[in-house]
Design a binder for these strands. Structure first.
Length: 570
DNA sequence: GCCGTTTTCGGCCCGACTGTTTTCAGTCG
């Protein structure tokens, strides 16, 4: 599959063109095409076979020819030419905050700087200061940009971002100068990782509100400060952007700053077709009269579509669906009646059976599956037969104390290198629920891993496959399995695939969970809790499920206990 | 470089903040 190759060549071409100060619309055309290739689910070569009439949006005659060349030779003529003129390292310079294409080009042409390292040196020996338009402040900004690049290479996980956001919100919401406060950006869209945190404030005293924000103790440095926008770096090195807006523009601003960029652009194009204009201040007609701005709902309605939940705003079909009134009724946290994946101190969890149960019950659940590790996972104190017996007894005792709530006797059992489960039949048949999981042998080939999971699906005791791709952000990449094979096997056998709500996992991903649904696979959200506080991670799993367009029907956790028991394999 | 139910040419999403500039370019989101 050469999709990634095509994407990276097109993007890199766009970067080079930008450096050459080319026509910005031509540059955008390359980026749009790359984005659209990235959105393909199929192998791109399917689009370029003899007689195929399928078209990729944003790819016209010219780019089609270039992509054809990339597919056969890995590159194309203009790309090779442009690369000969500029070392690739110059492109890296624009990754430094406050350095864009113009400065990168300047540094390369005047000082022969062709890498981030080179830029660092040029700053250190002050060579950079003499350049036109580069004065002390600019140098200082670039120096800080270099620092930031070093520290903030990775994106933030959703848990960290959420807690940073909550800290600002709880400090600000009680102030009388602040009428309303909300999170926007990719955090509101519940993306698994985010680059920064966006906060919106409604205030009639914008200057005062801004100062309250920039003056909070968790603010280490103020990057920018104006009456409508400010930007700070927190003591834990997270960038937080603030927008202050008047009440009657709140919806327009929230829409704009929630994004995604692609979603916004599509909406604006739609508005233009009607002779209107959308900005962060509202929806306006030709004469500049405001048609809507107070609430997001008003703007969507004026545009002739249903309200689109933030999690769907990725320009992946939601605008078309909303225009036809065909959006799915998304699953939400209040539909969730239980958690499938949690550990106790029998294996590697911190809390007891009873503590976990009480917390789950306080969340309004009907059930909690206590899925301690199985016998062969020694590092996590996997349970042997004797300890299983004790745990079962303890669960039975605990259950006697509950009404309308049950702890299920379950396990997260090892799928071995061949795809077998490590407990024998007579033990497996005693569980209320079995999750199969891979915790070893990640290095197998894609084929072996796929076969392993497919075989586990075919096991008549396995109800759910845990964290199907093994992703552990940021340290472990998802393993490369043949999703089509896995989805088919799961759908075939009625095995659910897990959406791990654990912030470093979030696995399956939104894209793959959406695909799984198309194959008729059911998804089961599990927090993989090792501690009572982890049970709250369910919100992240539900966010992911919503990004995957899932309805309550697609999610196993929405079933009441009686119905669930009927539908499990046993 | 793409695209078209007003267009095959002339558009292409829109605005704030900073720094260095005497009116605007660059960067960012």
């Amino acid at each position: 599959m050469k999709n990634d190759l095509v994407i990276s060549v097109l993007r890199s071409m766009a970067d080079f063109l930008e450096l050459m100060d080319e026509n910005p619309f031509r540059i955008r055309a390359y980026r749009t095409a790359a984005d659209n290739v990235a959105a393909l689910e199929e192998d791109i070569e399917e689009y370029f076979q003899e007689g195929v009439k399928k078209k990729i949006p944003g790819v016209g005659k010219d780019l089609a020819g270039k992509i054809r060349d990339i597919l056969s030779t890995g590159t194309f003529k203009e790309y090779d030419q442009i690369r000969r003129g500029v070392p690739a390292g110059v492109l890296d310079l624009v990754r430094v905050p406050s350095v864009g294409p113009k400065k990168a080009k300047l540094f390369y042409e005047k000082l022969d700087i062709a890498s981030v390292e080179g830029l660092k040196k040029a700053i250190a020996d002050k060579r950079i200061s003499g350049l036109p338009g580069i004065k002390a402040k600019t140098v200082e900004n670039i120096r800080r940009g270099l620092e930031l690049l070093e520290k903030g290479k990775e994106r933030l996980d959703i848990l960290t971002a959420t807690s940073v956001a909550n800290k600002f919100i709880s400090a600000l919401k009680k102030r009388k100068e602040i009428a309303e406060i909300a999170v926007a950006g990719s955090l509101r869209r519940m993306k698994d990782t985010v680059r920064d945190v966006d906060i919106l404030i409604v205030s009639e005293q914008p200057k005062k509100a801004s100062r309250l924000f920039t003056g909070l103790p968790q603010v280490r440095r103020v990057v920018a400060e104006g009456p409508t926008r400010s930007s700070v770096i927190t003591t834990d090195d997270v960038q937080v952007d603030l927008r202050v807006i008047p009440k009657d523009e709140f919806g327009a601003a929230l829409l704009y700053f929630t994004g995604s960029k692609a979603h916004n652009i599509k909406l604006r194009q739609l508005a233009i077709k009607k002779g209107w204009k959308i900005s962060e201040y509202g929806l306006f007609d030709k004469q500049g009269r405001r048609l809507a701005s107070r609430a997001e709902e008003d703007i969507y309605r004026k545009l002739g579509m249903d309200f689109i939940a933030p999690e769907l705003r990725e320009d992946s079909g939601e605008i078309e669906a909303a225009s036809k009134g065909a959006l799915p009724g998304l699953v939400s946290l209040k539909n969730i009646l239980g958690d499938f994946h949690a550990h106790t101190n029998y294996s590697d969890g911190k809390n007891s059976v009873l503590e976990m149960a009480q917390k789950a019950r306080s969340l309004g659940y009907e059930y909690l599956c206590l899925t301690d590790h199985s016998v062969s996972l020694k590092v996590a104190h996997g349970l042997d037969e004797a300890r299983l017996k004790r745990k079962k007894k303890e669960i039975q005792d605990a259950n006697r104390g509950f009404k309308g709530f049950s702890v299920l006797f379950a396990t997260e059992a090892e799928i071995d290198a061949e795809g077998r489960i490590d407990y024998p039949e007579k033990i497996l048949s005693q569980f209320d629920l079995v999750i199969g999981a891979i915790h070893s042998g990640f290095k197998q080939t894609s084929q072996q891993l796929t076969r392993r999971i497919v075989r586990a699906c075919r096991n008549r005791h396995v109800d759910i496959i845990a964290h199907p791709t093994g992703k552990l952000w940021p340290t472990r990449a998802p393993y490369d399995i043949d999703f089509e094979e896995v989805f088919k096997a799961a759908a075939d056998t009625g095995t659910a695939l897990e959406i791990s709500a654990y912030p470093n996992r979030l696995d399956l991903s939104d894209v793959n969970a959406r695909r799984a649904k198309e194959y008729g696979v059911r998804l089961a959200i599990g927090t993989d809790s090792h501690d009572i506080s982890h049970l709250d991670y369910m919100a992240f799993g539900v966010g992911l499920a919503r990004r995957a367009w899932l309805t309550p029907k697609d999610v196993l956790n929405t079933l009441p206990l009686k119905e669930l028991q009927k539908q499990l394999k046993r």
